[in-house]
Each structure stands twice: as C-alpha cells, then as structure tokens.
Simulated assay, not measured.
Amino acid sequence: MAIPIADIAWARAELARFLELTTLYHPPDPPGVAFITSRMSNRGEQKDIAASAQVVEQILDRVLPRWRTEVPDSRVNRWCRHREAAQRADAVLERDTEIRARLGDDAPDLNAAAMHPWAWEGARPLWQSGHFREAVTAAARKVNAETQNKLDRKDVSETRLFQQAFSQDAPKAGQPRLRLMQDDGSDTYRSVHRGAAAFAEGFFAAIRNPNSHADGLPDLPQHEALEQLAALSVLARWVAAAAVVTV
C-alpha cells in the first residue's frame, strides 16, 4: 500500500532537518570539573527542535502509526524516541520511492485524510495510535451521530435510522427523509434510495457490528481498515449532500 503522504520529498526533508537539529553529542565538562553521565545534548536550539517536532510528529503518525508505543524511549536524551522513529520513517519513505520508481506503480493512493470529515475525524485519534478496528467503529458512531443530528432523530440509530432516512415512503411526523435527488418518478430515483438504504444496512451488519464485538480478535490490517473507512466515507457523503424532506 502506498504511503499516505502526498509529498514524500518534502516529508523526508523535514525528517532530515529534525535529525540534524537533534544530533547528539557529549558537551564538554567545565574547566576543572569532571561529570560522569550518560546524558547527551542536541546540536540545535530547543525552540527550533520543538518547532520541527510539531511537523515531524504528524509525519510519523502517518508513516508509523504505532511509533509512540513501538519505538523504545531512552533517558539519554528527550528526543531519542523521536530520532529513532524519524530514522525508521525515512527508511520507509525511501523504499516507497524506490519501489514506485522501479515498478512504475502509478495506481491512485487511498488517502484517509481526503475522506469525508465525519469518517476521518471520527477515526483519527484511534487510527494514529494504531487501533484500526476500533477506529472504524468510532468513525461509524460519528457518522451515525451526524445523521441523527441532521434529521433531529435520537430515537433510532444505525440500520433502522438509515432505512427510515432513505425510505421512499413520504415523510411522516417525526420521520423526515433524506433525498439524494428529486422524486421524478424514475427508476433511477428508486434505485438510488433503495441502494443507499441497502448500502448502509450492509455496512452496519457486515462491518460495524462485527468490529464492535471483536474482543480478543487481532486488529485489522491497516489496508483492510482503510477500505472499510472508505466505504463509510461514501455513506457519509451521501448523508451530508442529501436534502431533508419533512411533512
């Protein structure tokens, strides 16, 4: 799977700058004083390192989502974990560039950040900590809640909510409908709304429900979770774009 960064050259340059700023060295002892310590200092100014780290951490979250827990920390210097993670991430990005160059892989990238905000923002915190199955579940809750908000309905949720929202029946008191196009009596109108309701039912039955009852199961591979998130993004865009029709 392609690395979810649009400009790899820029990302590698940011990592290189951070590594340069955080280069480690043993500061000389003051004249006439000898310290025995394993701690090391950085070549760059701490304010410059901190500013660079703000960008680098976001790169690391994309390339190595589990870096905060998988890369060991060290008491030698506060930036040791960041340095090792940056070195690992740079190696990953370098290999991705090499693979693309040698294999001519020009397939389009699936970028979670370009998905509908309801899907990605719901998933982001857990996704960036490497909990992919839980991230999809959280995103599903977010899309469900936003749909309830749009329809002003808290009495139903998930499958029933979307079945009623995309129902081709006329709206009722307390049951507004979502319309993806005007009712022109065509087969397309009926097909679009029947399909949207079926799509939502399929997502919650085959993806959201198993994910939310997956205690003890291994986490989803990232690429599978990304595919599931993309399916949810489609549903979110339909809901966001639909007109609300009331009695």
Score class of each variant (00 low, 15 high):
A140N: 03
P117G: 07
A112P: 08
D155Y: 14
M115W: 09
E121Y: 06
G130L: 04
D155L: 14
R177V: 06
R141D: 10
K142G: 03
G174P: 06
A119F: 02
M115G: 06
L178S: 04
V136N: 00
A119M: 06
L93T: 05
W120M: 03
E158C: 05
E121W: 06
R194L: 10
A196C: 09
R88L: 14
E158K: 00
S129T: 15
A107M: 13
A113L: 14
A107D: 13
T137K: 02
Q87K: 13
V156N: 14
H131D: 10
D155C: 12
S157I: 05
G185S: 06
G195Y: 00
M115R: 07
Q163T: 11
W120L: 03
H82G: 05
L178P: 04
V143E: 02
R88M: 09
A107T: 13
A170Y: 10
T97S: 14
E98M: 08
A140I: 03
R100L: 10
A205F: 05
T159E: 13
W120Y: 14
R83C: 11
R83I: 05
V136C: 05
D152Q: 14
R141H: 13
R153L: 10
F132C: 02
T159I: 15
G185V: 06
A139I: 05
E94K: 11
A135D: 03
L161F: 05
R102F: 14
G195L: 02
P125A: 05
V136A: 07
N144T: 12
W127P: 01
A196V: 01
W120T: 01
F166Y: 10
A91G: 15
Q163D: 12
L126Q: 00
P171E: 09
S186M: 09
A138I: 04
N111P: 05
T159P: 01
H116K: 07
L93W: 02
R100G: 05
R100M: 10
Q128M: 08
L161M: 07
A205W: 06
D187L: 07
L103Y: 10
L110T: 11
Q163A: 12
D152P: 11
D183M: 11
K150V: 13
F132T: 01
C80E: 13
P125Y: 04
E121H: 07
L151F: 10
A114S: 13
C80M: 15
P125D: 01
W120K: 03
A119R: 01
L103P: 06
D155K: 14
Q87N: 11
R153G: 06
G104W: 13
N144Q: 12
K142T: 14
D90Q: 08
Q175G: 07
R160N: 11
T137E: 02
R141K: 10
A200W: 00
F199L: 03
V192Q: 04
R102E: 15
G122C: 05
T97R: 08
A138F: 07
Q182V: 11
L178Y: 04
Q128C: 08
E84W: 09
H131R: 12
A86C: 13
E94H: 12
A113W: 15
S167V: 07
W127N: 00
R81K: 15
R81S: 03
R179S: 04
S129E: 15
A89Q: 00
P176K: 11
F132W: 13
